[in-house]
């Protein structure tokens, strides 16, 4: 436990985090791509067409992982933002602020793929129902956080303001999640359950789960890459950055 605690505290140090992130990033990438390759094959080729939706249901394998990630990334960002506001470690600010664009990307994907799925199934690309509207609000909250962060000359001040917004915006998370329960909506309810049996065929479930895990690893990989760049920029003037830049010049 002591070794773990020590390692955890070391991760809070920018130069250590920079090296650590650089080390695990290729592994995260490899796992993400392998899982996605198998998941895509399972979803597009092996899984049979849906009894009701035919092959249109295959959009699920990109739509649902993206929609889950839109909430998951927000959760990680909100926790980092909370830590950043209360204890002010620089790493928490970096992780929160660099998560925002990734979360926005996943939210945009969920909106676009959902729209493309809605047209053949519901007959419309868009409707102002609870799930769709709250997901759109989530996208705007992400954009607000990114915008606020960049509106300040001092990035640390920007991160602090944007972290507040991220914490407040977290009230939208349960609204998105429970929108299909609380309101009568066009969007279908939950079919995958953590507890108890899921109402989805195993041949469709395993590719979906693989794509979901792949998306999580992608998030990790992207976050490591983004945080590394952010650290170089934020810590300019520090010796370790100068060393890193010289080393990088040496090998291209």
């Amino acid at each position: 436990m002591n070794a773990f605690k020590l390692w955890y505290h070391k991760l809070g140090s920018p130069p250590y985090f920079y090296v650590f992130a650089g080390y695990i990033q290729p592994w995260l990438w490899t796992i993400a791509l392998l899982l996605a390759a198998v998941g895509l094959y399972g979803g597009l080729v092996l899984a049979p067409p849906d009894a009701l939706q035919g092959d249109a249901f295959r959009i699920i394998f990109v739509h649902v992982p993206a929609a889950w990630m839109s909430l998951f990334v927000y959760g990680v960002m909100a926790v980092s933002a909370f830590v950043a506001v209360i204890w002010r470690p620089k790493m928490a600010e970096v992780l929160a602020m660099e998560s925002a664009p990734i979360g926005a990307a996943f939210t945009l994907i969920a909106l676009i793929t959902g729209s493309l799925w809605g047209k053949p199934m519901w007959g419309t690309y868009w409707t102002w129902d609870a799930r769709l509207t709250s997901e759109l609000v989530l996208f705007f909250i992400y954009l607000g956080i990114i915008g606020l962060y960049h509106a300040f000359d001092d990035p640390r001040q920007g991160a602090r303001a944007a972290s507040f917004l991220a914490m407040i915006g977290a009230v939208n998370l349960p609204i998105v999640h429970y929108s299909v329960v609380w309101w009568n909506t066009l969007h279908q309810g939950t079919t995958v359950h953590y507890f108890g049996p899921s109402s989805i065929a195993p041949s469709m479930l395993w590719p979906l789960l693989l794509m979901t895990i792949a998306a999580k690893f992608y998030y990790g990989a992207s976050l490591m890459g983004r945080s590394r760049v952010a650290l170089l920029s934020l810590e300019r003037g520090k010796d370790w950055v100068a060393d890193e830049v010289r080393g990088d010049t040496a090998h291209g």
Partner: peptide, 8 residues
């Protein structure tokens, strides 16, 4: 895609 290519 069973006629759904333009969406999938």
């Amino acid at each position: 895609m069973g006629g759904f290519a333009q969406y999938v």
